[in-house]
Each structure stands twice: as C-alpha cells, then as structure tokens.
Design a protein around this nucleic acid. Structure first.
Lengths: 193, 193
DNA sequence: GTCAATAAGGTACGCGACGTACCTTATAAG
DNA sequence: CTTATAAGGTACGTCGCGTACCTTATTGAC
C-alpha cells in the first residue's frame, strides 16, 4: 500500500464498499466485518464515523442510486400519472428497491432512522413532481383547481408503497398501476371539482 | 410441578409466554430463551413446533388481540369512515400496534411470513367492512353505485398504514384522519358517479 | 402390569455478528 | 523535530439463534 488513507478519502472508500455489499447481499446481508475488509480497513474506522450498522447502511444507500427524479410530460394527466407509477415500480422492484425495502424494515421502529431515510430517498421531491403534474393538468383544463392538493398528490405513491408492503417482494403488476390511476386517482381528481 | 405437560397444553403455555414477551418487549425484544424460561420449558419444545422465531412471533400475536372487527353505523358515510379510521388508529398506536409493526418489519422480506401475517391480522375482513359501509351509503342515496369498489374500500386504510410507515411510531393525529376522509375518500366517492 | 414408542427436559455448544477496548504505527501540523 | 490526531491490528465480551445429544417421564398397546 502506497500511503495510508485518511479523512475524506477513507470515508468514500468505506461508503463505496458498503454500497457494493448492499448491492450484492442486501441490507440484511451487509456485515460490518465484510465492509471493513472490502474497504481494506477495519471496523474501528467505520465506528468512528457511524454509530451503528443502520446508519452506515442508510448513508451508503445514496451511493447506490443517482436518484434521478422523473418528470414525465405526456400531454395527459393519465399518461403522466401512469408514467410516474411505472418508473417508481421499476425502481422499487429493482435490486435498489430490495435494498431500500430492507433498510425501511430495519428503520421501522426508530424515528431517527426513518427521518434519515426520508431525506435520502427523496420522497419530498417526489411529492413536488406530482404537484407540478397536477398544476399542468389544471392549466390544460383537464382537472379542477381543487385537485392541486398535497394529499391528492401523494396518494398514488402511498398506495403503491402499501401494495409492496402487503404483498411480498417481486414487483407490482402493471394492471394494479392502471387500477390505481383509473379507479382511484382520476376519479378523485374529478371529484374535487 | 405436578406432572409434565405435553401436546396441546404445553403449546398453549408456550404461546401464552410468547405473547407476554411480545407485550412487554415487542417483537425485537422477544428472545427464544426468555420465552422458554417463562413457559417453564426449554427451547427444544419450541423448535419442535415452530421452525424459527418469526413463526412463533406471528403465532403468538393472535393470542394478544381478540381482533374485534368494528362495524360502525353512524348514519353518514363520513361518520362511518372516520370511526373506522379512528378505531384503526387507536389499535395501531396501542402496544398491540407496536408489536404488529415490529412483526411486519421482520416479515417484510419473506413472502411466506407476510401471508401468515395477513391471515392473522384480519386485513381481508377489514376490507369487507368498508365495502358494506359503502353499500349502506349507496342504499341511502349518499354515494353513487360506482363507489362500491375494492380499491376505494381499501384506500383509506392503506393511507393510514403508509402514514405509520413514513412517520415514526407514536400515533397519527386526528387531523390527518379527517383529511384522509374529507380531502381524499369522500371526493373519490363523489368522483366515481 | 409390563414395555416399547413418543415426547419433554437439561445442558451445552457452534456460530455469526455487533460493538468495544487497547495498543501500535503512520501522517500532518506547528 | 515533536506532538497531536487518525488509521491499523487484534482480540474480546456479549447476545441470541438454532442444533445436538442424552436423560427422564408419560402414554398406549399388548
């Protein structure tokens, strides 16, 4: 080894190693010893930076995903909404999604960790995207002004999340997304006239 | 000890002990050794009946709650819906709810366990209750026939669940329940005319 | 009433994994 | 050049799950 890494550089190496472990084994399979070994360091260096495994897992998660926020503009509210849900469904059923759900499960009983998760997972910017989507629909005369409402905007994603939480892992079928849009979301928008 | 317990009797004793542990320490704090000790037996007797901790936890959960299904009839759809949500909110924020959420988190990555959970937690009968609620509203002329729809019926509970999953533990404030009913559920029912 | 089959009790252990303690060694800063 | 700071090495303590193996009680068949 040329020289001994410290500070920033070492921290990045640890996060990188942790992210790889997450990708390969999920959060449940990510062990501190393996992360340390993979980063070419030891557990001390990790515990000097993060208080416990969960914190490292959450911190490493951002290294896994670029969190590219979709912003579809298909010309119709229905098309936009379906596209948003499909993108989300794809993310959640990908390996990233498996990791994310593992982290959520681990954080479930610790509000501190949940807050960290919300930051990292970009749930807030997601709600923003839905709101601007609704605003565009109102501008087109496709939806009544009353439809621009935070609870309306967040509802479809919440239903999707709940779908994942109830059923097992693999992926939510496309018909369910269509039902969410056609049987729930659009009628709700209409009903808020 | 008078005589050595076996079969049914022993099984009940184990489940009872496990339920007590769940109540006192939640699922995360329920250890096999403590359950065995509390039941006055040893781990063998447990592992001969359940393959692992999670299975015991789920089996013991039913000993904790009587699962009394509410069926309010306040005369208005709004009143019924609010009452349902309030009851659910109370259950979920009680000690039982803490246990339930711990179990859900533990089962999150195992479809087998999730199925067990759904059986035990009576989610299906819950959806039934919402559907009959909607049917009553239709009969009163308070809602259009199109409102009787499984996704409409399950939506409010799903939103409540998601609220718990996102925020931490304690309890969802009543204003949120009111928003779910007034800003989402009722407009949706209206919109399905 | 005797005797096998079955189930419970006792005890110990392997193992994986978290988090900690303590010391040694390199690097940076004054 | 010296001293503070941070990294590396290594070994533990602790918990808790799940298993193995043997001893002891109970039951039911003969």
């Amino acid at each position: 080894m040329a020289t001994r890494r410290r500070g920033e550089e070492l921290e990045r190496a640890i996060l990188h190693a942790a992210a790889e472990e997450l990708r390969e084994s999920g959060y449940a399979g990510m062990t501190m010893d393996r992360v340390a070994a993979r980063a070419g360091t030891n557990k001390n260096a990790i515990y000097r930076r993060w208080p416990h495994r969960a914190a490292l897992g959450i911190a490493a998660y951002r290294h896994l995903s670029d969190a590219t926020m979709p912003n579809p503009d298909t010309g119709t509210l229905r098309g936009d909404a379906l596209e948003m849900l499909r993108q989300a469904n794809q993310t959640w059923s990908s390996p990233h999604g498996v990791v994310l759900r593992g982290l959520l499960a681990a954080a479930a009983d610790d509000p501190t960790l949940l807050d960290l998760m919300r930051e990292r997972s970009g749930a807030d910017t997601m709600d923003r995207a839905w709101l601007t989507m609704l605003e565009r629909a109102v501008a087109r005369g496709e939806a009544p002004p009353g439809a621009v409402h935070p609870r309306v905007a967040s509802m479809p994603m919440m239903l999707l999340r709940a779908e994942y939480a109830m059923r097992g892992i693999p992926s939510v079928p496309d018909e369910v997304l269509i039902e969410i849009v056609d049987d729930v979301f659009l009628p709700l928008v209409r009903g808020r006239a």
